[in-house]
Amino acid sequence: MIRIQGLTKRFDEKHGIFDVSLEVLPGTIFGFIGPNGAGKSTTIRHLMGLLHADEGSATVMGLDCWKETQSVKAKVGYLPGEINYPQDMTGEEIIRLSRHLHVTSAERERKLREVFPFDSKLKVRKMSKGMKQKLAIVTCFMKDAPVYILDEPTSGLDPLMQERLIEWLNAEKASGKAILMSSHHFPEMEKTCDRAALIRDGKIIIEEDMKELRRRSTKTYQIELRDELAATRLAEVMGDRDGLAVNVEVSSTEELNTMIRRLTEFDVVSLTSGTDELEHLFMQYYGEEK
């Protein structure tokens, strides 16, 4: 449904995107991740027909995103990273305008307003970031599109709303929609994405199925012990000591079970998991940059 091949846009020698390729299939969510300024939004802008590529192509359902942008946008629901609606319009006016600008479904709109409630009588200038995000989510998904492009969709949402959005995205996926989602929020990526790519300095560094990424990732646990002697003893068999705590990296279920068995011999005060698996993996790639 979404296909990007060898997409290149040079703003100058170092800035832009270079030879970016990816594909998002129907019934899947593709996670697009990378540090600030890595090229995520630039790639998305090509899909929305806002930028003209120097090389390569971007298509949605076989339609060229630059030459046939009007047809592409008829098939795409778009949630921008920065919500910049006209400040003097109310939420209701924006929803009403969206009904006219897009082909929308009244039933979907009703459901969305139930799931993501907000005061639609307020003017945009009076709305909090979270309210603006909910308004953008409603206007994006009230269009029953086969393709969705979402730039940081959970930004500004409280945990309950994040959870509801994840449920909504998974339902859309189950109904066969193709979703490209850029995000910094690793838990939501783990819960929704089937495939993910990391972009850095305008280049795709890694692109894999989530299962494969999880298989390759390691997880860190911090185990706090009662005294320094115990911490030293544990560090001798596994992990690195840090005061009364020991940090242990686990990269498979076998290693996880071994760690649990060993811990039964110690007086453990607390056990906390470190960064999420996916986050940890991506942090490794982020780290390579430094």
Binding site: M48, G49, L50, T69, Q70, S71, K73, A74, Y78, P80, E82, N84, Y85, P86, I94, L97, S98, L101, H102
Partner: peptide, 14 residues
């Protein structure tokens, strides 16, 4: 400059 035009540019409008 502010990105407000995106309200229209995201719609099937040339």
């Amino acid at each position: 400059d502010t990105g407000e035009v995106m309200l229209y540019m995201a719609a099937p409008i040339s």
